[in-house]
Amino acid sequence: MTPLPVTPSLRLDGSTALVTGAGRGIGLAAAAALAQAGAAVTLVARSREEIEAAADAIRRDGGAAEAAVLDVTDLAAVDAFFAARPAFDILVNNAGTNRPKPMTEVTTGDYDAVLGLNLKSAFFVAQAAAKRMIAQGVAGSLIHIGSQMGHVGAPNRSLYCASKWALEGMNKAIALDLAPHRIRSNTIAPTFIETPLTKPFLQDTAFRDSVLAKIKLGRIGQPEDLMGAITLLASNAAQMMTGTSIIIDAGWTAD
């Protein structure tokens, strides 16, 4: 009798995970997803109150979680943070920002804020995590939260698109650099997800309608819509996936 193949597990028991920007929105959903799959999760952000509340909620739900204050734009602090801890098995590179405005109104301050957090910090957090993985022989998974705007353009999104397109290229090159160490690197590219960051924009009826006109499945995304993909990329079920992007856009980029 031919033995049936066995589906690789999506469980993460015994794994450790780090999620940046983890106090709310996509970051909180990522941390919850990983904890629910069995990983011990470290939530980091600048706001102690938010991440401690989030970690406490995960623990009340039966998961393992701790909160650690970290400003990922402070690269010296990033290096010190990773140097003081064992290698993580999983990184969710989520911290990000946006300053939507016409490109003719963009200031150097806007540029530095968006590219500094969305790209520079993402790169050096990934580098620090990967160095620890390599040093300790950990076959890990880097998951970068990109955007559909890393695959298309949009009005008033020149900086955001620049950062997310760059993240996609960075991800592919990182995947090649780290493949010999059995460290995978992938992105998740969501459409508009209703979070504290996007909610003020989505409350504008005209803007919300323009978004829904391009979302073929007819609704704004929720953080829960990303949790399955995050768990997949973190797990052994995705052990042959690296250097790619999972676009969760409800059909936006299909046109």
Rank of each mutant, 00 (worst) to 15 (best):
M1K: 13
P3S: 13
P5L: 12
V6Q: 14
V6Y: 03
T7P: 15
T7N: 12
P8K: 06
S9R: 13
S9K: 12
L10V: 12
A17D: 03
G21W: 01
G21M: 04
G23W: 01
G25Y: 00
I26M: 13
I26K: 01
A29E: 04
A30W: 00
A31M: 06
A32P: 00
L34G: 02
L34R: 02
Q36M: 05
Q36T: 11
A39V: 08
V44G: 03
V44R: 04
A45R: 00
E50W: 06
E52R: 06
I58M: 10
R60N: 08
R60L: 14
G62K: 08
V69E: 11
V72R: 02
L75C: 12
A77K: 09
V78L: 14
D79H: 12
R85W: 06
P86D: 14
P86T: 13
A87R: 00
F88E: 02
D89I: 08
L91V: 09
V92N: 01
N94I: 05
G96V: 07
N98I: 12
P100W: 03
P100L: 07
M103I: 08
M103W: 07
V106Q: 06
D110N: 03
Y111T: 14
D112E: 14
D112S: 11
V114G: 01
L117N: 01
S121D: 01
S121E: 00
F123E: 03
V125A: 02
Q127P: 07
Q127S: 13
A129S: 14
R132I: 08
Q136T: 11
Q136Y: 09
G137A: 12
A139L: 10
A139V: 11
G140W: 00
I143Q: 01
I145H: 01
S147K: 00
S147G: 08
H151Q: 15
H151V: 07
V152D: 02
V152Q: 04
N156K: 05
L159I: 09
L159W: 01
A162M: 10
S163C: 11
G169N: 11
G169M: 14
N171H: 09
N171G: 14
N171F: 07
K172M: 15
K172T: 10
I174A: 15
D177I: 15
D177T: 15
A179L: 15
A179Q: 09
H181Q: 15
R182C: 09
R182D: 15
R184K: 10
R184L: 05
N186E: 09
N186C: 14
I188F: 06
T191N: 05
I193L: 01
F201N: 12
Q203L: 13
D204P: 02
F207P: 04
R208V: 07
L212S: 10
L217T: 08
L217M: 13
R219L: 09
G221H: 03
Q222R: 14
P223M: 05
L226M: 06
L226C: 04
L226S: 03
G228R: 07
L233M: 08
A234M: 04
A237R: 06
Q239I: 04
Q239E: 10
M240C: 08
M240I: 13
T244L: 05
T244I: 07
A250G: 08
G251E: 09
D255E: 15
